[in-house]
């Protein structure tokens, strides 16, 4: 990962210097080692602060919406999975491709700080990423892990290491590749429950929601100028909750709004301070869409229609819900 970072710094420096780009969108150190924060760099010198390591999970694609409204061209670093969201934003005309320069960066899977904390890691000072081995230097000594054990959920079920959009790549030859697991495994588990059990599960999970809107703000698909939940004419804001279920509906409605568009980037669950597995709602939609309309990966390309915005004679009939025993 350090080699990737060096490639990023040197290319960004060259492009800034010859005026090909006016700004660079990357990550710089946050308050703690494990939270590199999205940041803009506009001088070659400032690039010394650019970091890229196993904690650079934050997706940068969405920042381009505002960035490309300004003058000049933005250099952005996208991990393979971030390119799906980038394509989706292009498809919905939210980002001006002409004003972006994409460097696809190699990725070895991003690390889950929650998993590390659960394993007793605290006070991280720095980290050595040696392929599948991870050495974390903490205030309390070094800790060693197998990288595969501490990956983020979205990385454990990675969609693949191919960049779906890029102007050039910064991918070293010997990058660690790992075995991924079935991303629908937990959805299938939920499907196996009775509707009562499933309702109880979601009531439990969603009861923790504090409506901080982090999921909405991180989501590359939730890019409305004004969210329906902020629109006084929608009839859902500024209203006393009849019960907590109405609060839960926020997530259900959000899942419906991103259905067929969600790129499965997993940011919603990653940024949730209450650790609600929100991505499962979206994955249920993706799984059903795949089953009913054929495999579809949102953001794989800029062109083409999503199955939910296209009418085909072979489209699934509503009766299928009945056949599957749904209400």
């Amino acid at each position: 990962m350090r080699r990737v970072r060096d490639m990023m710094r040197s290319r960004a420096g060259e492009l800034l210097k010859d005026g090909a780009v006016t700004r660079v969108l990357g990550w710089k150190s946050g308050e703690f080692y494990y939270d590199p924060t999205p940041s803009f760099f506009d001088t070659e010198e400032s690039l010394d602060e650019l970091v890229y390591n196993g904690f650079s999970a934050a997706m940068l694609s969405k920042y381009l919406i505002e960035a490309t409204k300004k003058e000049g061209r933005v250099l952005v670093f996208l991990k393979p999975c971030d390119t799906y969201s980038f394509n989706h934003l292009l498809k919905e005309h939210k980002v001006d491709r002409e004003k972006t320069y994409v460097i696809g960066v190699g990725c070895g899977g991003m690390l889950d700080i929650e998993k590390l904390r659960a394993l007793g890691v605290k006070g991280i000072e720095s980290m050595e990423e040696l392929g599948e081995n991870l050495v974390i230097h903490t205030l309390y000594g070094d800790k060693k892990f197998a990288r595969g054990d501490v990956l983020l959920e979205k990385c454990a079920t990675c969609k693949g290491l191919e960049h779906k959009a890029s102007d050039e790549l910064a991918v070293p030859d010997e990058l660690w590749e790992w075995e991924t697991s079935d991303r629908f495994a937990r959805v299938s588990e939920l499907e196996g429950m009775t509707s009562g059990e499933r309702f109880a599960f979601w009531r439990g999970e969603l009861s923790r929601c504090i409506r901080c809107n982090a999921c909405r703000n991180a989501c590359p698909v939730c890019s409305c100028n004004k969210c329906v939940f902020d629109n006084p004419r929608s009839g859902v804001i500024a209203k006393a909750n009849a019960d907590t279920f109405e609060e839960n509906m926020f997530h259900i409605i959000r899942a419906f709004h991103v259905a067929g568009r969600c790129t499965d980037c997993g940011e919603c669950s990653r940024v949730c301070p209450q650790n609600i597995p929100l991505h499962l709602l979206n994955r249920k939609f993706i799984k059903d869409i795949n089953a009913f309309y054929g495999e579809y990966q949102s953001g794989e390309s800029v062109d083409g229609k999503s199955p939910l915005t296209e009418f085909r004679t072979g489209d699934v009939e509503p009766g299928i819900v009945h056949e599957r025993g749904g209400a």
């Binding site: 919905e92 890019s223 409305c224 100028n225 004004k226 629109n231 296209e310």
Partner: peptide, 27 residues
């Protein structure tokens, strides 16, 4: 003011009634 310009409506419109234009929006 609420429109995002995402084109989804244009894609689903069975009559081709929707187009996209650059407008000055005051919100």
């Amino acid at each position: 003011p609420l429109c995002n310009g995402c084109s989804t409506c244009e894609l689903v419109c069975p009559y081709g009634a929707i187009t996209y234009e650059e407008h000055l929006v005051v919100d």
